[in-house]
Design a protein around this nucleic acid. Structure first.
Lengths: 350, 350
DNA sequence: ATCAAAAATATAAACGTTTACATTTGCCAA
DNA sequence: TTGGCAAATGTAAACGTTTATATTTTTGAT
């Protein structure tokens, strides 16, 4: 499998140069303890035989794994829907941020929150990685607790509330909802629906709290019937539109927390005979710029997912290098892309 | 970081049981050389201290990495579009197939074909993994060549032509296009457009060849203006519809190779004032069941991506175990889901 | 030239596992 | 009892690296 000759090791270079393993090892790592001339000799020899360090030796000796574990939420049922599609770009962004380092991204598929905690425990206990990245944070998050107790490097995609400061990246959900609501108020809307993720998720909570806050300052009563919590698939978006449209006083605007549920909401419009822009409007948050291709295109808060992804990668490298997490907290505000005017049309109702 | 006491090793168990490292090692691996009673003692001790094997030791000693490298195509430009979104599910499916084994999925982000080849070379040379999985195969594929020369285990998502047999998983593109074309013929269509991936890709070639074949047997002349090759983003689908609709004799049906381009095609319909079902129809291939939520829902060939994904994982495990690749070649035929009747409406044209 | 101190290099052990080989144990037939 | 053999266990080396410590070399002041 390797064409005959074994892979060169430090000993190969020792034999070539007459130096000791210690010196060669140090030279290869640019240690100031070795003379520049010596280092040059070592580097030349290394180049000649095509030496590259065997990570397994390093890992065993140092205990470092040079792996960053990414907990990847995977579909819970056989029914595959358009969920978590932005994960691919997230992973590639993180991987790119790792280029040029020894670190590799290792995937840990998890089905739910409990499995995620078990996996985190296993990673800590068996030191399967040097750092962990995960998303879907909760205000009081068991994974954060475990990692902080173990003093284990990690970065979350999403915020928490009940914990000591830790590194995170998130989109500015408060800013998004605030801006979206104000814009809809300005255009005459008073019945605004919120299509939200599961209640336990931080970003859902943030969105809801901001939503309630904005209603209050506009003097509008909070109506729980206009808020839906669930897994943000197209199916969910569609279903919620159909439910809410059947209300006595249906919403005239929908704020969807992702592009998938927004697509489903549009599908629900079609199913109910609603016309977007006439009967009601939909606003979305979009990581993939896909809502530009919906019919009709939607007004959206667009944050290319590569941006948070790269930040997650850069942050975890810094956390692993020992940088204090307080400085590694980033909120990103998406761009508002207005693709429809979204003004409230006065509709005659019985 | 580890709460004081060091992680238990084989030596820990030796100390507890009075056995030698060799015996303990063998006992832990269920070797028949050790008496069942002895093994029981070892297992009990292991359980007690919560022993788990340190992979780094194994890796160094055996040379195995217990990593499966996945070459992940990542966006080439800053413009993030809805491309490669099914990758997330692909990764999670593969990871799930690995559960219960020592193997982990490690991600190698690559920007293009050349980088993929370099990465493959590096993986082989430095033995960064025990197996490789990649997609986007070409009829004569440099990566396949490299891996076969090195006798390195791999599975492709997609077929090749110019190589010795190797393990692969793919959807039955010939079957898809054949069925789709026949169905459209049956419904009166004669001007059928093909929205295809890049020409160099195997599955694009297969689709085109089948397309031409079907045209021929139906006695219809091949018109290159009805075939588009490109990166299958929504933007591409939209653009191609707009171009083809401007033809003297525009298509009455579009066959899109994925859900993203189909969404874009629908968007193109809206932009041109075309009505789906009246002026023309769109058929798609869909890994994510998302075209059910388009407006209108599209007729589609649906293969939940988890199926090929799990197969890729199972196949690579078998290839690494030494099973001959001839038996590890799977073509999957998606289900045809008819969401519109797609009959040709006679349209008055000037 | 001598010597101490500093700089550079060498020695050897260690990380945790597997495995070739050696040794011991248990068993059975003679 | 002895010898022989198979089964079970033990010994020790090896995988490739890093690093504490020891040794050698160089430097510079005297």
């Amino acid at each position: 499998m390797n064409g005959g000759q074994a892979r060169p090791t430090i000993k190969t270079i020792c034999a070539m140069t007459g130096l000791s393993t210690a010196t060669v090892s140090k030279a290869l790592r640019q240690s100031p303890e070795v003379r520049p001339e010596t280092r040059a000799i070592v580097e030349e020899a290394a180049r000649k035989v095509g030496y590259s360090t065997n990570l397994h030796g390093v890992q065993l000796r140092t205990g470092k794994t040079y792996q960053v574990a990414i907990l990847m939420t995977t579909p819970t049922s056989d029914l595959v829907e358009w969920e978590g599609v932005e994960y691919a770009q997230l992973l590639s962004g993180i991987s790119h941020a790792m280029e040029g380092t020894r670190y590799r991204v290792a995937l840990y598929p998890i089905r739910d929150y409990n499995e995620a905690q078990d996996t985190v425990r296993r990673i800590i206990r068996n030191r399967l990685a040097d750092g962990v990245i995960f998303s879907g944070t909760r205000p009081d998050d068991g994974r954060v607790r475990l990692l902080q107790e173990a003093d284990f490097p990690f970065v979350t995609y999403g915020t928490t509330e009940a914990h000591a400061p830790h590194a995170f990246v998130d989109s500015d959900n408060e800013g998004i909802v605030r801006t979206a609501m104000q814009r809809l108020f300005d255009r005459g809307h008073r019945r605004i629906a919120l299509i939200n993720p599961g209640e336990h998720l931080s970003y859902g909570r943030t969105r809801l709290a901001t939503y309630q806050d904005m209603l209050k300052s506009a003097g509008i009563d909070y109506d729980p019937a206009l808020v839906a919590h669930g897994i943000l698939t197209p199916g969910f978006g569609r279903e919620q539109v159909m439910i809410m449209h059947a209300l006595k006083d249906p919403p005239t605007a929908y704020i969807c927390a992702n592009e998938a549920s927004a697509l489903g909401a549009l599908s629900g419009f079609a199913a109910c005979g609603l016309v977007h822009g006439r009967d009601a409007v939909i606003n979305a948050t979009d990581d993939l710029n896909v809502s530009a291709y919906f019919t009709p295109p939607l007004t959206t808060f667009y944050l290319p997912i590569t941006r948070p992804a790269e930040l997650l990668g850069r942050h975890i490298l810094k956390v692993m290098a020992g940088e204090p997490p307080e400085r590694l907290q980033t909120l990103l505000m998406p761009d508002l892309i207005e693709r429809s005017d979204d003004r409230l049309r006065t509709i005659e109702r019985p």
